[in-house]
């Protein structure tokens, strides 16, 4: 099992993710190689909360080009953790 710090990279800071906090759902950018079980364990360990459900989305990197050079931003994986009712993560995304 991967270490929690290797799994969770950063919170997702966006209007949508902030809105989801209302529903007790917290979004993170995670290591694309990590699976839901690892993510669940990592969130529980790091924030001392109980996770009910993890959903993940693979976010394909974007094609970028600078002049004639084509490139690609990395693929990322987003995970949305639903916490047990009553649990919350303090200070999520600077909130």
């Amino acid at each position: 099992m991967r270490d929690a710090r290797e799994v969770l990279k950063s919170p997702v800071i966006s209007e949508k993710s902030v809105g989801l906090v209302e529903e007790n759902k917290y979004s993170f950018w995670v290591n694309p190689a990590a699976n839901k079980i690892e993510i669940k364990a990592a969130v529980e360990k790091m924030f001392k909360v109980s996770v009910v459900e993890i959903r993940t989305i693979n976010v394909r990197g974007k094609m970028k080009r600078v002049g004639k050079y084509a490139g690609k931003t990395p693929n990322r994986k987003k995970a949305i953790a639903t916490l047990k009712a009553g649990d919350r993560i303090e200070n999520f995304a600077g909130l």
Partner: peptide
């Protein structure tokens, strides 16, 4: 603030 439409960012983020 990146990730937010204008006027939609939460207060703490604006402050930061």
């Amino acid at each position: 603030v990146p990730g937010f439409r204008k006027g939609k960012a939460p207060r703490r983020l604006v402050e930061l």
